[in-house]
């Protein structure tokens, strides 16, 4: 390329770099919603993705079934042993639920942070470049999905809704390394009934572990303890399982601790998800909102 750096081309290159930087800056700032041309293009792609994803999932499902057949005997044995325990658990759950409802009635508290309405959805696409882990699902605002709702599979939390279009939505996984991707979480101590708060932010690809930061330095977090969502962010329900603590280390300046968490849900092989629609918002936030309203009125 002998004439590559002629004046005209150099200028085009420089101008396009300037445009590139400003465009990246534009899209990196926190946006509440994407613009309508973006929404339209995403929905159109979602429509094509739906067509393509159907047959491919059918074929992939066939191969999976063949593989499953090989392990059927072993699985059956294990499932039977679990079935015995299930009857007891069911009876216990029913009793507890009844208890809970009665106690709530006494307290005159109807909604709780744990109540949510699941919206079933199928994953139809994934960001092929994988720098940011993002999924596309086949449900959108038409089905009641809004930005920032928590997304779970049967095993636990996998992420949140980044943006919702009319027919499709984009999900950001917890493993995504966006600096604004944080989740308020709690480490549960089963015996002492103590709760330790922290933030889930960051992911280590090599060990496949989530990082939980901002744990107080004097909190006693141990290996094997369960981590669930705290519900104090206001949009996530309380008590969605995230994972188990694997390792605890002091953070950089020793003021806080960092825990490494093995996620419960498989963050790679995801086909069906549930989007959680919260029935009530955090009572503390609600109170604050009411106070603000009163102040405005007076």
């Amino acid at each position: 390329m002998p004439q590559f750096f002629l004046n005209k081309r150099l200028i085009i290159l420089l101008v396009s770099i300037i445009i590139l930087v400003s465009l990246i800056g534009f899209s990196l700032r926190e946006r509440d919603s994407v613009t309508w041309p973006e929404q339209f293009l995403k929905d159109m792609t979602g429509w094509v993705q739906n067509i393509v994803a159907g047959p491919t999932q059918y074929i992939a499902g066939f191969f999976e079934n063949v593989q499953d057949l090989q392990n059927t005997y072993e699985e059956n044995k294990e499932l039977k042993s679990r079935l015995d325990k299930l009857a007891f658990l069911e009876a216990e759950v029913q009793l507890l639920e009844k208890d809970n409802a009665e106690l709530r009635e006494i307290l005159e508290k109807e909604d709780s942070l744990t109540d949510y309405e699941p919206i079933q959805a199928t994953v139809i696409g994934r960001n092929p470049l994988r720098w940011e882990e993002k999924l596309t699902i086949n449900k959108g605002t038409r089905d009641g999905i809004e930005a920032n709702m928590a997304v779970i599979t049967a095993n636990g939390l996998i992420g949140k809704v980044k943006s919702a279009q009319t027919f499709t939505s984009t999900i950001q996984l917890v493993s995504s390394k966006d600096p604004t991707n944080r989740i308020s979480a709690v480490v549960q101590d089963g015996e002492k009934k103590e709760e330790t708060f922290g933030l889930i932010e960051g992911y280590d690809e090599k060990t496949k572990r989530l990082l939980m930061t901002k744990i107080p330095y004097d909190a006693k977090v141990e290996k094997g303890q369960m981590v669930v969502t705290s519900g104090y962010g206001g949009v996530f329900p309380k008590g969605l399982p995230i994972g188990k603590v694997v390792e605890v280390t002091p953070a950089e300046y020793g003021l806080t601790q960092t825990a490494y968490i093995e996620p419960n849900a498989d963050l790679y092989d995801i086909q069906h998800v549930m989007v959680t629609k919260l029935n009530s918002i955090n009572p503390e936030i609600q109170e604050e909102l009411e106070e603000l309203n009163e102040e405005e009125e007076s």
Binding site: I19, L20, V21, S27, E132, K134, S163
Partner: peptide, 16 residues
């Protein structure tokens, strides 16, 4: 441009 809008949501990288 389509790649940026639909998949990465950061407009500019693939467009360039």
């Amino acid at each position: 441009l389509l790649f940026d809008i639909v998949y990465t949501e950061i407009i500019g990288i693939n467009l360039f």
